[in-house]
């Protein structure tokens, strides 16, 4: 038997089906929380936004899946809540301004081991500007280009263009 879709689980959860909610929650808990946490850099705020995003989709106006999937809606609501949170507190400047200066690049003679390379890439991701970090985490959450376009509220072409910028930036940080 095929497992229920997110959209089916959503409809059941809205009617008060706790088992359906459990399934839906388990599917998206880590990916959504990871996304929110990486945007806000604060666990307590991330938990609030994560909670409020679920409440909004479960108790707010009924979602229409004609144009976007459940996950696209969920991430869109969470992303907008993150943006509001960042705007309304001092962390906005911390998130949007330049990140701390990069570590000095190794000389060409230095050959990076695989683990060094891995940690440098992780560091590069951490230093990404807000818009690119957001894109990275949405993509890493498994969302398609179309879903990311819905979440960010930008055209598909903009998503692809930003993704190329992201790739270029990450590659630039590696030797």
């Amino acid at each position: 038997m095929t497992p229920p879709t997110d959209e089916q689980l959503y409809e059941r959860a809205r009617r008060g089906d706790v088992a359906a909610f459990d399934q839906l929650y388990a599917r998206w808990e880590r990916r959504l929380f990871g996304f929110v946490l990486r945007l806000l850099h604060d666990r307590s705020s991330a938990e609030e936004v994560f909670h409020d995003a679920f409440i909004e989709v479960l108790e707010g106006p009924r979602l229409s899946f004609a144009q976007a999937s459940f996950s696209a809606w969920l991430f869109r609501v969470a992303r907008n809540a993150c943006a509001n949170r960042l705007r309304s507190n001092a962390r906005k400047s911390a998130a949007l301004q330049l990140w701390p200066a990069a570590e000095p690049s190794p000389t060409p003679e230095q050959s990076l081991t695989e683990s060094e390379r891995a940690s440098r890439l992780a560091e590069s991701v951490r230093r990404l500007p807000h818009a690119l970090a957001e894109l990275f985490h949405l993509r890493a959450s498994g969302l398609s280009y179309e879903e990311i376009s819905t979440v960010l509220g930008v055209p598909l072409g903009t998503v692809k263009s930003r993704l190329h910028t992201l790739v270029h930036q990450l590659k630039g940080d590696l030797p």
Partner: peptide, 17 residues
């Protein structure tokens, strides 16, 4: 290895309370 790094950077092992 690159894939692992990407997954680690996404911090999908963290959960809310």
């Amino acid at each position: 290895s690159l894939k692992r790094v990407r997954e680690d950077a996404a911090a999908f092992d963290e959960r809310p309370s």
